[in-house]
């Protein structure tokens, strides 16, 4: 297997992790609490995509994966909004630990509900791109045969990351979101509806997680109970990049995937995982604010 294939796979996986981590940071900034259900929302998106694909594939054909993207995003956005309204907002006046516990509870309920609804077996989601001519699974780019689905995953995730960046940096809603994240009290004082923006953050975060779930479900399948692992990845990505820094979470996620792939190929995956956590420990010692630093200096 040549190096460009490894890079393409690492980029695809890192981009999907980045969507999960980005949603994690959006919620962190909106309500000042870690959303421990973010990994399970990703799993929910994967299951929803796999279930819908089974029914819709005959009608949608080889483009089922792309066609289902907005459907999964909207469904998960509604779920994220509901979580904020029902489990997090009622605890707004309590210490942040109450919101942590609430999201842990929501995550566990989601995990068991998904296992009950979809069963214990892994499911495969829809492909994003149809196979190439003659059924080939690769896409020849710059003289290299790259896995089509990995290229598609990286492209879709890249477009979404850019869209979220534009939303946050250049839109009225994005400015209000950032203002509420930076100083919620002052934002409320000047009339910014911080509560509604928290709901919007949860919805956006869940939509991103759901899309990540769809992207991952074809190449890597989806199985109930793997949300905790995804959550840890998002947590480390946020820590690596700088707690609360959106760009940092994306960079952190890409670094995690690149590290796992490079060290995994050169040595072994268990060693790669152990070394990754060792590196995180070292980073916490020498640069606790993360690679890009903390934007507001309020670590949860």
């Amino acid at each position: 297997m040549d190096l460009p294939v490894l890079i393409a796979n690492a980029l695809a996986l890192g981009a999907a992790y980045a969507l999960v981590a980005l949603g994690f940071v959006l919620v962190l900034n909106a309500v000042g609490a870690v959303n421990f259900a973010q990994g399970d929302l990703c799993v929910a998106g994967g299951f929803l995509a796999a279930a819908l694909a089974q029914r819709a594939a005959p009608a949608l054909g080889p483009w089922t994966g792309l066609a289902l993207l907005p459907v999964v995003a909207l469904a998960l956005a509604a779920l994220g909004w509901a979580i904020e309204r029902l489990a997090v907002r009622p605890l707004a006046a309590r210490p942040p630990v109450a919101a942590y516990i609430a999201t842990i509870a929501v995550g566990l309920m989601l995990e068991h509900a998904l296992a009950g609804l979809f069963g214990a077996a892994p499911l495969g989601g829809p492909a994003l791109l149809p196979p190439g001519p003659g059924g080939t699974p690769t896409l020849t780019t710059l003289g290299h045969a790259l896995p089509r689905q990995s290229v598609a995953m990286a492209a879709v995730a890249g477009v979404l990351l850019l869209a979220v960046h534009l939303l946050l940096a250049h839109s009225w809603t994005g400015r209000r979101l950032r203002a509420a994240a930076q100083d919620p009290e002052t934002a409320r004082a000047v009339g910014i509806p911080a509560g509604h923006l928290a709901g919007l953050s949860f919805a956006l975060a869940a939509a991103l997680a759901g899309i990540a779930g769809l992207l991952l479900s074809h190449q890597y399948f989806v199985v109930a109970g793997e949300g905790a692992g995804l959550m840890v990845k998002a947590y480390i990505a946020a820590t690596l990049g700088g707690w609360g820094r959106i760009g940092g979470a994306v960079i952190g996620a890409l670094l995690i995937a690149a590290f796992e792939t490079a060290v995994g190929a050169a040595a072994s995956p268990p060693l790669a995982e152990a070394l990754l956590y060792a590196c995180v420990l070292v980073l916490l010692l020498v640069r606790p604010q993360g690679l890009l630093g903390e934007p507001y200096g309020r670590r949860a």
């Binding site: 297997m1 490894l6 690492a10 995937a257 796992e260 792939t261 995994g264």
Partner: peptide, 9 residues
């Protein structure tokens, strides 16, 4: 572990 391409390599 999701990406098994290092193992395949």
């Amino acid at each position: 572990l999701r990406d098994l391409s290092p193992i395949v390599a």
